[in-house]
Amino acid sequence: MSVSTAFEKARVDGRAALVGYLPAGYPDVQGGIDGLLAMVEAGCDVIEIGLPYSDPVMDGPIIQAAAQQALERGVRTADVLRTVEAVAATGTPTLVMTYWNPVARYGVERFATDLANAGGAGLITPDITPDFAEDWIAAADAHDLDKVFLVSPSSTDARIAMTTAASRGFVYATGIMGVTGTAQATAAGVAPLIARTKATTDLPVGVGVGVSTGDQAAELATYADGVIVGSAFVRRLLDHPDDRAAGLRALTELTADLAAGVRRA
């Protein structure tokens, strides 16, 4: 299933899609895969796998901590692709969220090829914008991969139009001015950005950054086509460093709470 099909299916159900994030390689590669499979099982419609990076400027302390530990334990780009393969095999559309340098270093065309071969749906790219992504756009188009770029409350209307025109899959609207896992997004805060974005595109719009609870998901699902949750999932794993079964149970519980939330709107 493609990302756009998953959003469409949710829309037909009269609800928002739930997008769940974990970084690859935390607590280790298999532990990360197990966590993501638990999230699929409990109701995530789309999975977003973080590629751990040494300098993640859009991430707050929670995701930084997990990514840093994954790197210290030796996670490699190849492990991220292995994680994609394991999750995509469930049929749930699977995106990679990555800062740009690891992709540039791997080789943009080679990365696109290997991601497509692993069954990956595309990339979410938090530190590049379409006007500086010519090589990624070309590679994604050649491999029919989704290009999820971000729009922000500070974006001008012209930049939103430029961004949505270059996007495929969905458009990622940041719920707050800030990094992941810090402040809470509110419907009142994010509604104007969603409206400005929808005015330029028929693509679904997902809201992420600042979303952590089922109640919030319910509130945001009134305006957005998808709700994206990252730090709250990662927090569940960080809270259970020595008890993997408890970590997986916590992921399942949070997924269920959020999945109920997107259905309450």
Partner: peptide, 12 residues
Amino acid sequence: GGRFMPEALVSA
């Protein structure tokens, strides 16, 4: 050079 930055900072 160029500008490889989060969209949130581009307007600034």
